[in-house]
Amino acid sequence: MLWSVVASVLIAGVVSTVIPKVPEVPHQAVYNVILSLLTFSFLFFLCFFLLTRRTVAYLLSLADGLEVIAGGDLRYRIPAPRADELGKIAENINSMAEKLERQIEKERRSEQAKMELITGISHDLRTPLTSIVGYLELLRNKAYRDDSEYERFVGNTYNRALQLKALIDDLFEYTRLTTREARLLKQRVDLRELLHQIESEFHPLAKESGISVVTALPPAPLFMELDPEKIRRAVDNLFMNALKFSVKPGVIRLSLETAAVGSKRQAAIRVENDGEPIGPEQEERLFERFYKTDDSRAKGSVFGGGSGLGLSIARSIARLHGGDVRLIHSDGHYDFRIELPLEAR
């Protein structure tokens, strides 16, 4: 702005020297002074207008843009073609609008997740509870033909009660793992031996489903600082997921590997199985709480549909240990990996 004023003064000085001078008489001298002042003022404001009209127009566009954003259109972006301070202001306004948009979208997704959580809990708890009430009503009214049917009603009621308990246990475990109060009870554990124990326990369940389990564990012990019960829960959940959705007859492969990732080393527990392929969208949502893929994938499974929390719980446990759970899927081949850092966290 200073250089525009200087330019105006210089132009006015040049013009005043060009104006012809009249004989110096008192009233003529006053006339010359007034004429010079008017000429200077006219040229000053003309130069000021010409030199600042773009800046003023851009200030007006900034004001209009702020009004649009303040009206709720957070996707609107103010053009920022200038490289000066006003351009920087426009960039800051756009950045502010983008952050507000992300924050509002995050809150919207959080609210939607809460509603889905309530809906999922209601649906998953209501189904077995309705069956339990129905069977108990039949038993109370003695609506069975013989002892065999009585035993069947009691057995179905008991199985539904176990399913209800498992759902509540999963919900409790997930809630506990995702709060800030979650704590690990770490011990020095041979991870290879822990996986061997888990694999031995799953053999009867796998055989019942027509599944064989193949292991590839290292010959030497692999001692790590971890919470053995939580890691057992995470591996159990991956095993149960594989048992539910494997083709039958089929094979589940359990392996343990170590590898260098950058400057650090990590252990990877891999649970692999073959099943029906899923799409990219389903693959991205597998670890969401209460998310379930098409129930037809689990057709024939003796384990039911589950709570939809198993993979979320496994990922939460891995992240508490400083690791993660990820899936590599290719045309129906599923490779779930629990990755844990070998260094103590």
Rank of each mutant, 00 (worst) to 15 (best):
G134R: 07
L177S: 02
Y135S: 06
R233Q: 12
P20C: 07
T293C: 03
S307V: 06
S122E: 13
E283W: 04
R108A: 15
L43F: 14
R75V: 09
L205W: 07
G305M: 05
T179M: 13
L342N: 10
L286C: 08
Q28C: 06
D84P: 10
P219A: 06
I132G: 04
T17Q: 13
M1Q: 11
R289P: 13
S209A: 15
V251S: 03
L162Q: 12
F336D: 01
R297L: 12
S4I: 13
L50N: 01
A143D: 11
S8L: 02
K142Y: 02
G134Q: 08
R183W: 03
A166I: 01
R77C: 04
L171M: 14
I231L: 13
R77K: 14
T293L: 09
E151W: 03
A29E: 15
T293Q: 07
S330Q: 15
R75I: 05
D227I: 00
S330L: 15
R160M: 06
P20H: 09
G120A: 06
T55N: 06
V56Y: 12
R319M: 13
Y174W: 11
G71A: 15
V6D: 00
E107Y: 08
P128D: 04
A314R: 01
V189W: 09
K21Q: 15
A90F: 05
T175K: 12
G306S: 02
I19N: 01
H123A: 14
D190T: 10
G262D: 09
Q282I: 11
R253S: 13
L38W: 05
V18P: 00
G87W: 02
E173H: 09
D84M: 09
G300N: 03
L164V: 06
A234N: 04
Y58A: 12
D331T: 07
L167Y: 12
R176H: 12
E91H: 07
I269G: 07
H203P: 02
F336S: 05
L327E: 02
